[in-house]
Design a protein around this nucleic acid. Structure first.
Lengths: 190, 190
DNA sequence: ATCCTTTATGCAACTAGTTGCCTTAAGGAG
DNA sequence: CTCCTTAAGGCAACTAGTTGCATAAAGGAT
């Protein structure tokens, strides 16, 4: 259950409104934990109720911007959470389930599998492209934000090494997907 | 939404009861899509209602085993689903969120970060171990089930190449995690 | 002024997944 | 035979996430 903490993190970097958060989630944190604006608004309300953030709005009317900021209790909660031990989350991927299904289906059907095999290969190629694109994007961010020689960190700035580690995780995932898709396509060649 | 299809796949490989399915989910399919026995029983009921599987129980009483098997409509549904295009699912990982949080926290606290950094390193080391263990397990399965020379496939048997591809995906993920954790630990050395 | 679009906020209803507890049956152990 | 344990099946209540829609304000376009 990481959403509240993801929001705390984002607000700690920079206070803002629900809509701003939702936009930011489409970038940065959203690459590793997604949330719709609905989830964000609900969670902001809960966090305020729990006394972890404070909203600086004149009135909480509709269509009116409210700004949220983390207060000390929120920082404490985030510190507590980051030092908790959590087991790695098991993989949950629909494509792999589909491949397993496809493997079994071919056994159950007498019909030649050329059509289905073609669809499968096309799907794998498509995934390879999408992952390749995401990989290129991450690499561009890396070149821009983590170029050699920019390791100096000013006090009060987020830890550069940790931020880089997170980005490297993204890069490694995409790279793994791409090379897996390529290898799999090769073994499925007609 | 892969659970019903994961269940269809598993039942197609081998019909069985809810409890058997739950056990099987702890192995094979469960490595890529987890489900509790509750989800499985509910989903079995729905699949039967939708006319995709058939239960061969004398009576549906409690504490009495019921066997389920896929019927033609179920196979058709699985075929339909496997040829659908689906976009890759974005990564959602709590550890990466935590690292990002840790990166920001260090900016917000004046206190020396030795204690927190130690906790973080320990956690990374623990994850590395767990992923290493899972990797070894997958590799053992690979050696056992996909040894060179066993590619011959009898008709009516699940497609060997696809099953191997799924396993290789698991291997690639674990390998990626392990090497990422090692590299990250190196950059965080005190 | 009126209409249209965009931004910000939110309710309600839904689907998916989790947790805690419970009953029934069967197979041994005392 | 009674007690205990395990396996099988399931209800109820909960948390998390999604979808569809609504509403308010602000800034243009006509």
């Amino acid at each position: 259950m990481s959403l509240p903490h993801a929001i705390l993190t984002s607000l700690l970097e920079k206070p803002g409104s629900g809509a701003e958060l939702a936009q930011r989630f489409d970038k940065s944190i959203g690459y590793f934990w997604q949330a719709t604006h609905q989830q964000i608004y609900r969670e902001l309300a809960r966090l305020e109720e729990r006394g972890l953030i404070r909203s600086a709005a004149r009135e909480a009317t509709r269509g009116r911007k409210r700004d949220f900021a983390v207060i000390p209790a929120g920082l404490a909660e985030l510190e507590r959470w980051t030092s908790l031990a959590q087991d790695p989350q098991p993989v949950r991927d629909a494509l792999l389930v589909r491949l397993r299904a496809a493997a079994v289906i071919q056994a159950g059907t007498v019909q030649a599998d050329t059509a289905r095999a073609g669809i499968l290969r096309a799907e794998l190629a498509r995934h390879r492209e999408l992952h390749q694109r995401q990989l290129s994007f991450y690499q561009a961010v890396e070149a821009h934000d983590f170029a050699a020689g920019s390791e100096a960190r000013a006090p009060g700035t987020p830890d550069h090494r940790l931020q880089h580690a997170v980005l490297r995780a993204g890069i490694m995932f995409e790279r793994a997907w791409v090379s897996w898709a390529e290898e799999t396509l090769r073994t499925l060649e007609p």
